[in-house]
């Protein structure tokens, strides 16, 4: 099992490096570092532009390969370069990553856990009301973009607050300035409710469908027949033997799922105007900030791969066949 995980980790490391390079190259090609100097009146002096480009290492006259190389050597020393507003990208990302991770971890754990649970119950009670409601509900949720869910939740919260006559749920930003101690904690928690909900709803819909479908696949196999032949009832055969077996194929989609979850979290965070990684990338794209964009992409890639690794560990734990 350790060998398996070590191999996966090595694979992930190579992929992370490649994704980082790809991110930098794409950012360099797609973003125009001169964009913020254009249209100024009076025009920015050439000297100043050159100076600014030299600081960020994004002079278009330098060959892309050598720009990439110097950026990578910076990365080797733990620096992601300087952003256009002269701040180190590394510290900016470190700040924002905390914000993003908070939502990501909470949302993923809740979303996947609840999703699997709903899927199991739905499969066990196939065609009963619970199954029908969750199946059709998840269909609609999956057809609804995350930001629409977010807006709907905000509208709902506004109505709730109006009805209650006070701020029951707060949802703009991450926290209300001025709170201290315990009040600050509850304030932050209150701000977390809606974004988490927005993320979790989508994940529950997706994962309950996976789990339900996988369970129903197992239902048709000899595995359940075998369990029933031992003396299990249909339901206990499905629960005792089906759940774990059904989770195996799901965990093989790890990296893909991780990317999906991360994108969902990013969109949620943007919709609630949190100052997270998504916003940073969006800003970077608007300001032609190559280093910030490349840095964000690199961190994202690492995050996706880490999530993928977590899923791999789960997979190895679930299925003895990979523990060789």
């Amino acid at each position: 099992m350790l060998r398996y995980l070590a191999r996966r980790a090595a694979n992930a490391l190579v992929l992370a490096l490649a994704a980082t390079c790809l991110g930098y190259v794409l950012a360099s090609v797609a973003l125009d570092p001169l964009v913020r100097f254009r249209g100024n009146n009076p025009p920015v002096p050439d000297e100043q532009i050159r100076h600014a480009l030299a600081i960020t290492g994004t002079d278009p006259n330098t060959p892309l390969a050598s720009r990439l190389w110097s950026w990578l050597s910076g990365l080797a020393h733990g620096s992601l370069g300087t952003s256009v507003d002269n701040r180190p990208v590394t510290s900016e990302i470190a700040e924002r990553a905390g914000t993003s991770l908070q939502l990501l971890v909470l949302g993923t754990v809740l979303g996947v856990g609840l999703g699997v649970l709903v899927g199991v119950v739905g499969a066990v009670r196939q065609h009963r009301w619970f199954d029908r409601v969750t199946t059709q509900g998840s269909f609609v949720v999956l057809a609804t973009p995350t930001f629409v869910v977010a807006v709907l939740l905000m509208v709902g919260a506004t109505r709730l607050n109006e009805a209650a006559g006070r701020q029951v749920i707060r949802f703009t930003g991450q926290y209300t300035p001025g709170h201290e101690g315990w009040a600050a904690v509850t304030d932050r928690a209150s701000h977390l409710v809606l974004p988490t909900l927005a993320l979790v709803i989508g994940l529950v819909a997706a994962f309950s469908r996976y789990q339900r479908a996988a369970m129903l696949d197992v239902l048709g196999t000899d595995l359940v027949r075998g369990a029933r032949a031992m003396g299990h009832t249909q339901r206990s055969a499905l629960v005792r033997h089906g759940v774990r077996v059904a989770m195996v194929p799901m965990s093989t989609l790890a990296v893909y799922t991780a990317g999906m979850v991360l994108a969902g979290a990013t969109i949620t965070e943007l919709a609630f105007s949190w100052h997270g990684m998504g916003e940073y990338l969006l800003l970077a794209a608007q300001r032609g900030d190559v280093n910030a964009a490349a840095g964000t992409v690199a961190c994202t890639a690492v995050l996706v791969l880490v999530l993928g690794m977590v899923a791999d560990v789960l997979y190895a734990w679930l299925d003895p066949r990979v523990r060789l």
Binding site: A19, L26, V255, A263, I267, A301, V304
Partner: peptide, 8 residues
């Protein structure tokens, strides 16, 4: 697949 489509 490593870089989410939205980011790209």
């Amino acid at each position: 697949l490593v870089i989410p489509a939205f980011y790209l």
